[in-house]
């Protein structure tokens, strides 16, 4: 079963005299309970593609399906996507609400969408998620007071609060040290295995796909390559894919 299916998606942004095409004719399938990584140089449109799927941007044309149901263009907005199709988004900068403490950040979607839930149950549920993300010790901290790695975990905790079927993650490992990266990948794998969530990750860190047993597609000049497992991907004869693999392994060597 396909969790997400994109057909002939096109997206452009207005330029000062014309429009600049970012994505041309994108076709993509993400299977249920699987991991798919989108690689690509900076500025190729990886984050844009995730934002399009999440409904934060509108495509110029094309069709987007969630579990086989089409998201019509006039209904394709983030509120609908989140509520109807149970899609959660983890932003590159975590995007935690700055005037709410860690606990309240995670509790916010639960309180908002389950107003009937007694406060002790909300507390239990939030604490359970925070513990599973190993950030329960920061529950009374404001986001600015915790490290980037911890912020990333809280952002994932918040995204998981409503038990999404699909998780979109933008550069989840950027700026993390090796230890934090490993534990974050373990948490993502848990979500896939235990909750059968489908996970789409935009990243420069292509090793993620290997470690999570997922596939990789490369986004280059607005076009996606065929999905491949890491071992096949690194053998690709395409120059831009070789560059991507080289950059990714260089970054991993630094870590």
């Amino acid at each position: 079963m396909e969790s997400i299916s994109l057909r002939n998606i096109k997206y452009s942004i207005p330029d000062w005299k014309d429009s600049k095409v970012i994505l041309k004719d994108i076709n993509l399938q993400l299977q249920q309970s699987s991991v798919l990584c989108i690689g690509g140089q900076s500025g190729q449109g990886k984050s844009t593609l995730l934002r399009l799927i999440a409904g934060l941007l509108q495509p110029d044309s094309g069709q987007i399906f969630f579990s086989g149901i089409e998201s019509k263009l006039h209904e394709h907005n983030a509120l609908n996507i989140a509520l109807v199709h149970k899609v959660a988004f983890v932003f590159q900068n975590s995007a935690l609400i700055s005037n709410l403490k860690v606990f309240d950040n995670v509790a916010l979607p639960i309180r908002y969408h389950h107003p009937d839930l007694p406060s002790n149950e909300v507390t239990d549920r939030v604490m359970q998620i925070l513990e599973s993300m190993m950030v329960d010790e920061y529950k009374d901290f404001f986001p600015y007071a915790i490290s980037m790695g911890a912020q990333r975990r809280v952002a994932i905790a918040r995204a998981l609060a409503l038990e999404p079927r699909i998780l979109l993650m933008d550069e989840p490992t950027s700026g993390l040290d090796a230890k934090n990266r490993r534990s974050l990948l373990a948490l993502i794998e848990n979500q896939r295995v235990l909750r059968h969530a489908s996970i789409l990750i935009a990243t420069h860190d292509l090793r993620i796909a290997q470690e999570l047993n997922g596939q990789i597609i490369a986004l280059h000049k607005g076009v996606l390559s065929e999905p491949q497992f890491y071992d096949d991907f690194v053998e690709s004869p395409e120059g831009y894919i070789r560059d991507l693999v080289y950059e990714s392994s260089e970054n991993n060597d630094i870590l």
Binding site: G55, L79, F91, L96, S98, P109, Y112, L162
Partner: peptide, 22 residues
């Protein structure tokens, strides 16, 4: 404005929370 720059408004929407209501 800062919430927009930091994608906090987008984050609200992706949680199904209407920024106009919240």
């Amino acid at each position: 404005g800062n919430m927009r720059v930091e994608s906090e408004v987008d984050a609200l929407e992706t949680m199904g929370i209407d920024p106009i209501k919240y």
